[in-house]
């Protein structure tokens, strides 16, 4: 099993070989973000900016204004939080071709504890004008997303993790920015998930299946622009929705789905995610249980929205 950060590192290497306009900026931490892999092969296109995320994002803007495709790499919490206003003013206001790779996102960071666990990055990046937000579910998808980011116009945020992610997707699966991938069809309830939660959602569908409930599972790798068609179809065809994210439910992925549901086709909906609380240290598996992010939690939420549907 490989982490999505590994897929990101591989994607950067492929991009480096294929395109001369790709440069990588690193706010230290290059070994952790895998940016160091690019540095080893393309030292002249790698720029160490040190522990200075605001400067890194501004420098990336300068590269983009000079026709380059810069990937700025740090932990998600620092890249999106500390440099939020630089991303707003120096990047998004000018719709620049800056790509941000944020690793160590979510509770699955584990032992490093709350200050290093990005819980709000989807919310923060989703509110940025012109920003595309992608949350890959495994290393294969992360590699594809990284390569796709380079040819997606404007700013892109890639939300990545350090915890080895169970393989969910195959090499042959399509990856189109903004287009959700149906993993399993069903007609009783739809489970929308991103990142590591896609695997949990598949396991939840298995649990539900053993109870005679047929759950649709959708991998929403792109949180912005959200795939409205997939959401509306799920509302019409299954009549109940559960979202699952390894992130705060305040303004995050579940909120993005709920906005469409409420506007287009209101049906019972439940959000699985981090409930407006900070993180803590622990083993990722323990933390998933403690923060109610497991397949069991998703299955329980699914049964509850199905109940509401019948009333």
């Amino acid at each position: 099993m490989k982490a999505t950060r590994d897929g990101f590192g591989e994607g950067l290497l492929e991009l480096g070989r294929a395109r001369r306009d790709v440069v990588v900026l690193s706010g230290d931490l290059g070994d952790s973000t895998r940016a160091i892999w690019f540095q080893k092969e393309f030292p002249n296109r790698f720029f160490e900016i040190g522990i200075a995320e605001q400067d890194m994002l501004g420098t990336a803007a300068g590269f983009a204004l000079s026709g380059k495709i810069p990937f700025a790499c740090s932990f998600g919490v620092f890249a999106t939080g500390r440099a939020w206003e630089q991303i707003r003013t120096s990047v998004c206001n000018m719709n620049l071709n800056v790509k941000i790779g944020g690793t160590h996102c979510g509770i699955s960071v584990g032992a490093d504890g709350t200050t290093n666990e990005a819980m709000e990055d989807i919310t923060l990046m989703r509110s940025q004008v012109h920003m595309t937000v992608i949350v890959p579910c495994d290393a294969i998808e992360a590699r594809k997303a990284t390569i796709a980011a380079a040819s997606t116009p404007g700013p892109v945020y890639l939300r990545l993790g350090r915890y080895p992610a169970p393989g969910v997707t195959q090499e042959k699966d399509p990856f189109v920015v903004g287009k959700a991938n149906l993993i399993r069809d069903g007609k009783d309830v739809s489970l929308f998930a991103c990142g590591l939660m896609v695997h949990e959602a598949i396991q939840a569908a298995d649990l539900l299946g053993s109870q005679g409930i047929r759950a649709r599972v959708v991998n929403m790798h792109t949180v912005k622009p959200v795939d409205r068609e997939a959401i509306v179809a799920a509302c019409r065809e299954t009549g109940a929705i559960v979202t699952a994210e390894e992130h705060t439910i305040v303004g995050g992925f579940g909120s993005a789905v709920a906005e469409v549901v409420v506007e287009e086709c209101p049906v019972p909906l439940a959000r699985i995610g981090i409930l407006d609380r900070i993180g803590e240290s622990g083993e990722p598996e323990e933390l998933f249980k403690a923060f109610h992010l497991t397949a069991q939690d998703i299955a329980q939420a699914a049964r509850s929205v199905i109940q509401k549907k019948r009333k």
Partner: peptide, 22 residues
Amino acid sequence: TSSGSLGQGLSIANGMALAARL
């Protein structure tokens, strides 16, 4: 560049300078 949120221009100028050198 857009500007007016203070303190951001020099980083952008650095990026331009590094790109020019490259």
